[in-house]
Amino acid sequence: MSATAFEKAGLAGRVITVTGGAGGIGRAAALLCASRGAQVVIADLDEAGGAQVVGEIERAGGRAAFIRTDVTIEDEVRGMVAFAVSTFGGLHGAFNNAGLMLGGTPLTDFPIDLWEKGVSINLTSVFLCVKHQLRHMLDHGGGAIVNNASASGAVGIPMAVNYVATKHGVIGVTRAAAAEVSGRGVRVNAILPGAVETPLLAEAVKAPGVREAVIAGHPIGRISQPEEIAEAAAWLLSDASSFVTGACVTLDGGYTAI
């Protein structure tokens, strides 16, 4: 009997890394993947937050571990992959979610040090993660990688040159990787969320009227919850999306439709 769609969406037996897993979308994805049977490695700079998520997973009967990781440093990314393999015996999926939002500054005034910081955290980190995840997966039976690119990777947004440029770059890394390795058992996709209720967004919309303007830009009439975005990431990590690679799945409440 062939597997049902529900069975294909399960993640039992998979080892999955989640960068930026201590909070926001990463936390939601880690909890969801664990609830579907995955063993989850949470990688973040926030040790207290990471330990808290591990505790939540374990109290629910799942398995998880935390490793402090600066995803802009290649040796630490390499170490994250090695940690997943040594702790749980392999690496079958990865959600590359860590990122930083730098906005509110005109392009003509954007300082080079902040530009380089944003490129390092939002784009170079994804390249490094995909590089080392692929090295393992290509030699050990394949896998699935999901990169968090943001709806900002599909449009231009005033006063957000660095975030827009780096998220466009994440889409480029995703598509290039998918084209290169898809015939070798690894699928690589990206998700493009709109505004999501996270601490990152709260900081970005704290000025008067900004939150209302962000909501108004989403035809659905609200901001999404992290759990809604996590559902798409988990689906792309599962066999339910077995024919999907090189895709950029938009999860933005209609933001890029207008």
Rank of each mutant, 00 (worst) to 15 (best):
A176H: 11
D252S: 08
G254T: 05
G183R: 06
F110V: 00
V41F: 10
L102T: 00
V18I: 15
A213W: 09
N189F: 11
F127G: 14
A29Q: 06
D44W: 03
G49E: 13
A94P: 10
H136I: 05
G141W: 03
A179W: 01
A151N: 09
S241D: 14
P158L: 05
R135Y: 00
P199I: 04
G21Y: 08
V244S: 15
L192C: 15
I220S: 07
A234V: 12
R63C: 08
T174F: 02
A30H: 02
V146A: 02
G103A: 15
G118V: 00
L128M: 09
Q225V: 09
A240P: 13
G217D: 11
S238P: 15
R36A: 03
A34M: 02
I145V: 08
F66G: 03
V40R: 07
N162T: 07
L236V: 14
K167L: 03
V244H: 12
A178N: 14
H218K: 12
R135H: 01
L91P: 09
G194I: 12
I171L: 15
R78F: 04
D113L: 04
R63L: 06
D75Y: 01
R68I: 00
G209P: 15
I67G: 05
E203V: 03
I223C: 14
T198L: 03
G172F: 04
A3L: 13
R14C: 01
A29F: 06
K117A: 13
T19P: 01
G103I: 01
R78I: 12
R63S: 13
D252N: 06
G104E: 14
V130Q: 12
I57Y: 07
A257N: 14
V146F: 01
I191K: 08
F127C: 09
N147G: 07
P158Y: 01
I25P: 00
P193E: 14
V54R: 13
V77C: 11
N189W: 10
N148G: 13
L114K: 15
A82N: 09
P106C: 01
R135F: 00
I220C: 14
E212N: 10
V196E: 02
L123H: 02
T19Q: 02
V249G: 06
I229H: 10
L11D: 06
